[in-house]
Amino acid sequence: MSDAALLDRHDAVLLDLDGTVYHGARPIPGAAEAIGRVRERGTPVRFVTNNASKAPAEVADHLRSLGVPADPGEVSTSAQAAARLLRERVADGANVLVVGTGSLAAEVDGAGLRSVRKVGDEIAAVVQGHSPKTAWPDLAEACVAIRSGALWVACNLDATLPTERGQLPGNGAMVAALRAATGREPLVAGKPQPPLFHFAAESAQAADPLVVGDRLDTDIAGAVAAGVASLAVLTGVTTAADLLAAGPAERPRYVAADLAALAGKADELEIGPRPGWRVEPGGSALVVRSAGGRDAADLLRALCAAAWESDLATVRAADDQAAATLAELKLG
C-alpha cells in the first residue's frame, strides 16, 4: 500500500453542500476544520450546488455564517452551468425566457444573452430553475416557447428540496409539469449530469478533481457521469446499505464517515479489501469476520468491494466483533 495522501492524487476538491458541509442552518461538526486543512495544502476548493435560486455571493455568505470561509468565486451553481450551456448553443444576444429567480436571470445576462419573462420577440431558449414564486403564468409562457421550438435547459431535476417544514416541491416537479405539457425533454445542467462538475473543475483549473458528497443519485452519479473520482461521506442521506446496493453508475471510489477523511491516505480510503476484515460470500449473504479490525468505515470499504463483485447486499457476522461493527453500520 502507498502512503500517498488522498489530496496528492487530486488537484481540487468539489464539495456538495447540504448533507456534506452543513444541514440547512447547522454546520456538520468538523467540516469547517477539514476544509481549512485542504486550503492549507493549497488545494483549490469549489462548493458545488444544484441550487439555482441563489447567487454565488449568497451561498458564500451562508457558508461564512456557519464558520466556513468561502469566496463567491469558489461557488459553482447549476444556474452558472445552465448559462454556460445556453451560451454554447444559442447566438450572442438571443432572447432566453427565464423561469426562476433574478439570480438565474443575472447569470443569463452575464453570459451575453438577454433574459426575458414573456414570449414576445423570438425566444431562442427557455431556462428553468427553482423559485418559490414560480406560478402557472410562468409555466404557461415557457410552454408556449418550448412548443414553438425553443431550446429548453433545466438547472436540475431535483423533485424535492429540503426545508424546515420537510421536503417540498423542487425544480424537478415544475420541470415535470412542462414535460407533460410539451412532450419535450430538457437539457440538464446540474447533478447528476456532467456539466456542473465540468464547470466547477474548469473554474479550479483542475484536471483530476475529487467530488465529495452524501448522495449517490446526484453527487456520486454526477461524478461517474463526468468521469472523475468521488468520495461518499455518511453525514447525509446515504447509508451503508445504500452503498452495498449501489449500481455501477452510483459507485464512489472512496468512502468515509465525514470530511475529516480529506486529510487521510488515499489507499486507506479507497474501496477494496481491508487487512483487518475478511468478507466472503456464504450462500445468499456476505460473511464478515474480524481479523483485528474495529473501524466501521474500513469494514464498509471491504463490504462494498465484495458486494459489488458478488451482487450480494445481505451481510452476516461470523464473530462478536463483526456483529458489533455491523450494528454500528446498521447492517446485519
Rank of each mutant, 00 (worst) to 15 (best):
P194E: 11
A261P: 10
G129R: 01
R179D: 01
A81L: 07
L262M: 01
L157Q: 11
V48P: 10
S203I: 06
E141R: 01
S2C: 09
V45L: 11
G283W: 13
P248D: 11
L17M: 14
T160D: 13
P194S: 05
V98D: 06
L7G: 00
A180C: 10
R89I: 03
G93W: 10
L300F: 04
P192K: 04
R294Y: 03
A31N: 13
D18F: 01
S148F: 03
L86G: 06
A317D: 04
D219K: 03
V90R: 02
P186D: 13
T101P: 00
V98P: 02
A201T: 05
S148W: 02
D18A: 01
M1C: 10
A94C: 03
L104M: 10
L178F: 04
A125D: 09
A317K: 10
D267L: 08
A159R: 15
L331V: 01
W152M: 02
Q321P: 05
V13A: 01
P209D: 03
A221K: 10
L14T: 04
A322G: 13
G42Y: 09
A177N: 03
G264K: 00
L299D: 09
P29N: 00
A307H: 03
A306Y: 05
Q321S: 09
A240W: 02
S78V: 11
F197N: 06
N171I: 11
V116I: 15
A25H: 14
A229E: 13
L161G: 07
Q321H: 08
D311E: 14
G172D: 09
A173N: 08
L66P: 12
S148H: 10
R251D: 02
P275C: 05
E107Q: 14
G112Q: 03
T160Y: 11
K330E: 15
A60V: 08
D138P: 10
P72Y: 13
A106F: 02
T49H: 09
A181I: 08
R274E: 15
N95S: 14
T77P: 08
V188H: 00
